[in-house]
Amino acid sequence: MARRILSVLPFGVMALVVVVDVTAGSGVGLLPLISLGPAFSGLVGGWRRTLAVGLLSLLLCTALGWYDGLLDSRREYTALASVAGVTAAGLLASVNRLRRERELASVRSIAEVAQRVLLRPVPRHAGHLTTAVAYTSAVAEARIGGDLYEVTPVPDGVRVIIGDVQGKGLEAVETAAVVLGAFREAAPEEALLTEVGARVERAMERELNGEKFVTALLVDISPEYGATFLNYGHPPPMWVPSHGEPVFPEPEEYALPLGLTAHGAEGPKPFHVDFGPGDQILLYTDGVTEARDADGTFYPLGERAGLLADADPERALAALRADLERHVDGPLHDDAATLLLRHRS
């Protein structure tokens, strides 16, 4: 809408000046304001459009000078010089704007490729689970954010990670790449989930030198033993049993985020839920639960668990995301990732 207004603004301004000049007469002295046409034209479109508007404004300025009897006057020459000067400035501004837009498009393209490589699509079916993911970055200009996730099938089940990196944009990519690379390597190799977490921690200490941290939730899910969680300062999962109310299982004591436990702090203790056929687990980042409405009320995720009842997990997450955007009445102010895990009967 704003771009459409800017597109017609140069012609509207010039038309207004013409109408006022013809109606009120030359004594008003609005003739130099014809130069506003090419001035506004440089805000949108290419240099050819700006040049065309500039030539049109010169013609209008000449026609009004003839109508007002000012063709050989200093006022007419001053107005024509103003139009020519503003047109030249508009052309330079248009060329520079187009160059910056091309550079920004290149950065966006690189960011999108980095995001796709970093956050690979989760498998729709992983072992005994059906999975779906939804992710919205708050950094619309870069289209890349600070949340991460991965679903890795292993011989005796599925291992999952979801996390929230300190910082956003391209600075968060390096941290997320270290965490996901270490998790993808350790998840199929380590027997214990705590060892997977320890390897991710060591990778962060080695690669990032303690400069970044990540809140994360690691999950080990098997058909026989349910779900085991390892929480590094991350929001609790939402477990939705097939028959019953949603539950937010939490550890007895929260641990520090990844990247901080290497400084002598004790790591997290695993905790367990009886995740069985027909159950669902929703993993999410704090961009979901900390989203506020106009009154400052946080998003009531537990009350919205019914939105996950759709048989298609992707449609279920889409419904949840749409409800979240209605809650905040607009775009989100923080990255928000949701990962839905369903135990297939």
Rank of each mutant, 00 (worst) to 15 (best):
L317C: 08
Y254A: 14
G233S: 01
I281Y: 01
P155M: 06
G29T: 03
T131H: 09
L58Y: 08
S35Q: 04
I5R: 12
G65W: 03
P251R: 07
V154N: 10
L91F: 07
V165C: 06
L301C: 04
L119T: 00
R304V: 08
T228W: 09
A79S: 10
A294S: 13
L60E: 06
V247R: 12
L192K: 15
A318S: 13
H333T: 14
E103I: 11
G244M: 07
E190D: 12
A138Y: 05
A316G: 02
P38R: 02
D323T: 01
R304Y: 07
L192R: 14
V17S: 02
Q115R: 15
K212P: 05
I161V: 13
L217R: 00
A126Y: 08
V240R: 05
G69A: 04
E171P: 13
R108C: 09
G157C: 03
G163E: 01
A319K: 13
L217T: 00
E201A: 02
R321C: 09
E171Q: 14
A319L: 15
R342W: 10
A336T: 03
E325H: 15
L98M: 13
R184Y: 05
V117Y: 13
V200W: 00
N231P: 00
P251W: 07
W66F: 12
P32R: 01
E266N: 14
V160P: 00
A318C: 11
T228H: 07
I162F: 00
F275R: 04
E103Q: 14
V165D: 01
V165H: 02
T62S: 12
P223H: 03
D335I: 06
A187K: 06
E325Q: 15
S109G: 14
Y67L: 10
S94M: 04
P270T: 01
K212M: 09
T228L: 04
P236R: 01
V18D: 03
L258N: 00
D312C: 06
D274M: 09
L119P: 00
A63L: 13
N209P: 08
L170H: 05
P153E: 04
P300Q: 04
A93D: 14
Q280V: 11
L258Q: 00
R75Q: 14
A186P: 09
A227G: 06
T194E: 06
A176T: 02
G12T: 03
P38K: 01
G12A: 08
L256I: 09
D310F: 02
D312S: 06
T338D: 01
E224M: 12
P10K: 03
L60F: 05
R326A: 12
E207K: 04
A337F: 11
E195H: 12
M14Q: 04
L258W: 00
P188E: 07
R74E: 14
P241E: 03
R184M: 06
E290V: 05
F271W: 07
I281V: 10
P246S: 04
S7L: 15
R102K: 13
G12W: 03
L9W: 10
I221Y: 05
A309G: 09
